[in-house]
């Protein structure tokens, strides 16, 4: 099927690629169908694009890419909600916010996305403890520095 997107124009996707977010992303409760689009061969970022709303898309990334010790406690209830039998079926992604100066981009480590690539169900968690911030600066201030913890 074809979908319209602001970023990439018309894109051909397979229906089986669609990911359902039954409760929606927080703030966007009515939009439930998304698809993950590649943004290029050599970038770690992907676009979590709404299928039915061309202008809505979130940049996501595997948090382990810049924070190897990132760990989310997944509750049993979350597994049920995603029709997952065990944790290995679940992929964790985080949403990136990009301000005018892209080098100051932040990752929302407090509200990670859990995606079950098998059942194609996803949800956004809100972590109850204060370990992680919704505005984690990904790129260290000094330009010369490399990846945090990398």
């Amino acid at each position: 099927m074809q979908i319209n997107t602001l970023r990439f124009g018309t894109v051909e996707i397979d229906k089986s690629e669609i990911i359902i977010v039954p409760e929606g992303i927080i703030g966007f409760p009515d939009i439930r169908r998304y698809v993950i689009l590649n943004m290029g061969e050599d970038t770690p970022f992907k676009l979590f694009q709404a299928v039915d709303e061309p202008t809505l898309g979130f940049i996501i990334i595997d948090p382990l890419f810049f924070k190897p010790d990132y760990k989310v406690k997944i509750r049993k209830e979350d597994l049920y909600g995603l029709s997952a039998e065990n944790i290995s079926e679940i992929v964790t992604s985080v949403i990136i916010t990009i301000p005018e100066d892209p080098y100051k981009m932040t990752a929302n480590l407090r509200g990670p996305l859990l995606i079950n690539l098998k059942s194609r169900l996803a949800k956004q968690l809100v972590l109850t403890d204060d370990t992680y911030t919704p505005r984690y600066l990904i790129i260290p201030r000094t330009e010369s520095a490399q990846m945090i913890g990398g």
């Binding site: 970023r7 943004m39 970022f45 979130f58 940049i59 916010t97 990009i98 301000p99």
Partner: peptide, 20 residues
């Protein structure tokens, strides 16, 4: 989280091209 999601969704085309 809600505010952060809204900010994240409001990405302009220029930044989008840059971060690639």
């Amino acid at each position: 989280i809600l505010e952060e999601n809204r900010l994240a969704a409001r990405l302009n085309s220029e930044s989008f091209e840059k971060i690639k």
